[in-house]
């Protein structure tokens, strides 16, 4: 069977990259009032082919835990999911939303996936991962970095627009998190807080 598998990975310790991004967005690019939270994940999505859904997840999980594929157990938390199976790993994504914020304003968490414009690179990862898995074939690998940007905004579409302004470096004074000349983004989802 073929299973769409997703893996989210986050640092256990303070993420200095996210912290610097936040300081830069607030102090240098004037997003101070709207930016409520910024969390960064590594992300992989793929089609995995094997006998059963639990078996596929089990094998990828083994590669993660024992083979050191994708994560470094000393530094990372992860969440591996696919189909309707209970997710594996120690990362509780739903607890990652920032707490608090002004009660009178609506806020949205926008999950933005940033990928390099190089599909051959993702295919390379897939074949290398495939080499480490027993009885599971991997295809259609998609990987990159996810920025969960939480912003105060009146509507979901306004929140997405604001997140995209933070994402895309258009000029010295506009945008930060990706360079559109070698990276692309897509919105994976939003959540109203």
């Amino acid at each position: 069977m073929k299973l769409a598998v997703e893996l989210w990975v986050r640092l256990k310790v303070i993420d200095l990259v996210a912290q610097t991004a936040r300081i830069t967005l607030v102090d240098k690019l004037d997003f101070g009032e709207r930016l409520r939270g910024l969390t960064r994940y590594s992300y992989w999505a793929m089609d995995a082919e094997g006998e059963t859904a639990p078996g596929i997840l089990e094998e990828i999980d083994r590669a993660i835990r024992l083979d050191g594929a994708f994560t470094n157990q000393n530094k990372h938390l992860y969440r591996l999911s696919g189909g309707g199976e209970p997710p594996r790993g120690d990362l509780a994504l739903e607890k990652d939303y920032p707490a608090g914020g002004a009660p009178d304003e609506t806020a949205f968490a926008v999950d933005c996936l940033v990928r390099e414009l190089r599909p051959d690179r993702e295919a390379g990862f897939a074949s290398r991962l495939g080499g480490r898995l027993r009885g599971v074939k991997v295809s259609r690998m998609k990987c990159g970095e996810i920025w969960r940007i939480t912003v105060g905004a009146p509507s979901e579409s306004a929140a997405i627009a604001e997140a995209e302004r933070m994402l895309v470096s258009r000029s010295r004074r506009e945008g930060l998190l990706l360079n559109p000349h070698y990276q692309r983004h897509e919105i994976l989802g939003t959540k109203r807080l």
Binding site: V17, T20, K28, L176
Partner: peptide, 18 residues
């Protein structure tokens, strides 16, 4: 600069001295 955090050069590019 800035440990290449986010992306090489981008944090310094937004610095005041720039």
């Amino acid at each position: 600069s800035y440990q290449d955090r986010i992306r090489a050069g981008v944090v310094a590019a937004k610095d005041r001295v720039m």
